[in-house]
């Protein structure tokens, strides 16, 4: 009988096709991977995510004029931070500075009503630090430029997303539930950043 082996051979072929290792996704254009890495950089750094959340909590629920001014300040700050950070070679983790920024921002959310000028200033500071924290590691100028472009776009996108999402939530769920959620989130961010800052400090200067 010949049908059995044929079916078995077909089975082997089918199994081999199913078990083939996945194709490693790669960029068809040189340098595009750097752009992608830069775009997603804020999401890969938990401290940056916390800054973005704090930015949203502090600015998102403000009146539109204040929100716009703070958003522009944050985007301008990010651009300035990225350029200055690249120029002065400030690539690095900057976890401690980001933790202090979150600590201050969360405290400002809990302290009601924090002045509008403070929100705009915080936006600028957060933007600068996010920009500096997104500076790519040293390398070829072309790679650094492409990754920096991705980082700039990524930080800008996520700043807009954080503030926009919070503004939309504030409009959709205005009232006690939103205020409660906002304050609880701020309390958690304050607690996490405080412990994180203390742990970093302890690690850098053992008592």
């Amino acid at each position: 009988m010949i049908a059995g082996p044929r079916r078995a051979a077909a089975g082997i072929g089918f199994a081999a096709a199913l078990a083939a290792p996945q194709a490693a996704a790669h960029s068809p254009f040189p340098g595009l991977q750097g752009l992608y890495t830069g775009l997603l950089h804020p999401l890969t750094q938990p401290a940056q995510i916390m800054v973005l959340l704090t930015l949203g909590l502090l600015i998102g629920a403000r009146p539109e004029a204040v929100r716009q001014a703070a958003t522009v300040a944050a985007l301008g700050g990010a651009l300035a931070g990225l350029i200055a950070g690249a120029a002065f070679g400030l690539a690095g983790d900057h976890g401690g500075a980001l933790a202090v920024l979150v600590l201050a921002g969360a405290a400002a959310v809990l302290y009601r009503p924090a002045p509008d000028a403070l929100a705009v200033t915080y936006g600028a500071l957060a933007g600068i630090l996010l920009g500096v924290a997104s500076v790519p590691d040293p390398g070829g100028w072309r790679d650094v430029a492409i990754t920096s472009l991705g980082s700039g776009l990524g930080v800008s996108f996520f700043v807009l997303l954080a503030i926009g999402a919070m503004a939309a939530a504030a409009e959709r769920w205005a009232g006690t539930v939103f205020d409660t959620a906002r304050l609880v989130a701020a309390a958690w961010l304050l607690a996490i950043s405080g412990l994180y800052a203390a742990l970093l400090w302890r690690a850098s200067a053992p008592l």
Binding site: T176, A187, L190, G194, L195
Partner: peptide, 26 residues
Amino acid sequence: GAPAIWQLPVVFPVVMAFGGVLGILG
């Protein structure tokens, strides 16, 4: 009830973190 139902869970983590920092710093 309100507002304690949400204010206590706001107060606790903040003050707890303060205590945690004291513990971390010795």
